[in-house]
């Protein structure tokens, strides 16, 4: 019991810290692509401290407060289900579907809060976020089906273990197709550029985020950090082979090596998303929905069919 609690605490702290570093990396890499110097890597932590130390706070009711906490809670629950090297707290048979579901729940929480604030920009942003979520469901579902069909299991842990024997998922053609589709979906889940329709700064003033300030925004920053960590971790677990190192005698060394390997894979996933985000302009919502229902769906469906053959 004590050990599980310690593990959960460790995962939470590690995910938050690395997530903040990821946010810093995104900002620095984007700045370098723009030929700027960019902020220091710990800038998101300073932002969060500043937001949490605001002296006045504006609330718009119970749902407004609850939605923010709901988003944070769902993200923390998701991170507990995803195997982090050989540390895992919660494990269930169908957790492949559960994690996919839990990674989208935070957006719903933010939408509750945004819509209860009554700001028209927040309403438009929430509508757009809902439409984007609707658009990404189809390729996401096909990609998950392809995975489950190929490995014959819905358990993330077993998929990671199977990859230690048969090589990375993306080495197999059907799963490579699924991975490409999932990576395109990941772009919308990060809210990066071609699909940042819901937050669209300068067009609809950050969309759902427009009314958040002070401590609410601080909690959302923490949530965003953990969500970044969780999404990249999930991708590197199911497609990039995860990391289960057993070469060393000491379990601590094994854990550190697994975490390091996972970190490299996560940063690779993150950088692909950042590069795509830095060079593409923004889609409109109908273009995004058409895109998702056409190309990633075709690719992922092809992968699912090939996997079941």
């Amino acid at each position: 019991m004590m050990e599980t609690a310690l593990k959960a605490l460790f995962i939470l702290l590690y995910a938050t810290f690395v997530g903040f570093m990821f946010m810093g990396i995104i900002r620095i890499v984007t700045a370098r692509i723009h030929r700027r110097v960019g902020p220091p890597i710990y800038q998101p932590i300073l932002d969060t401290i500043k937001l949490l130390s605001k002296k006045s706070n504006i609330t718009h009711g119970v749902i407004y407060d609850f939605g923010v906490l709901y988003a944070l809670g769902a993200t923390i629950l998701a991170i507990m289900f995803i195997p982090l090297g050989n540390i895992g707290v919660l494990r269930a048979y169908g957790d492949l579907i559960l994690i996919t579901f839990l990674l989208e729940i935070p957006m719903l929480g933010i939408m509750f809060a945004a819509m209860s604030s009554g700001n028209p920009y927040a309403g438009i942003g929430a509508q757009r976020a809902l439409l984007t979520m609707l658009a990404i469901q189809v390729p996401l579902g096909f990609a998950i089906v392809a995975l489950a069909e190929f490995y014959g299991t819905f358990s993330t842990y077993e998929i990671v273990m199977a990859q230690q024997v048969s090589g990375w998922s993306i080495a197999h053609l059907p799963l490579l197709l699924a991975a490409i589709a999932y990576d395109l979906v990941l772009q919308a889940m990060f809210g990066k550029e071609p699909f940042d329709i819901m937050i669209a700064p300068g067009e609809i003033s950050l969309g759902p985020m427009v009314e958040f300030g002070g401590k609410h925004m601080g909690i959302l920053q923490i949530q965003h950090a953990i969500a970044l960590f969780a999404e990249t971790l999930f991708f590197s677990n199911i497609f990039l082979g995860g990391a289960v190192v057993t070469t060393f005698a000491s379990p601590v060394l094994n854990t550190i090596a697994s975490l390091a390997i996972l970190l490299v894979k996560q940063i690779a996933v993150l950088l692909v998303a950042t590069f795509m985000g830095a060079i593409f302009p923004r889609f409109t919502i109908d273009q995004a929905a058409k895109f998702y229902w056409k190309w990633p769906t075709i690719i992922a469906a092809l992968g699912a069919i090939l996997a079941s053959l």
Partner: peptide, 22 residues
């Protein structure tokens, strides 16, 4: 904001919403 004078070095970030502005 862009590459010549780049105020993001000091953490200054343009923001459209007054609720989270300093």
């Amino acid at each position: 904001a862009t590459s010549r004078y780049d105020f993001e070095r000091f953490g200054v970030m343009p923001n459209p919403s007054p609720r989270m502005a300093d």
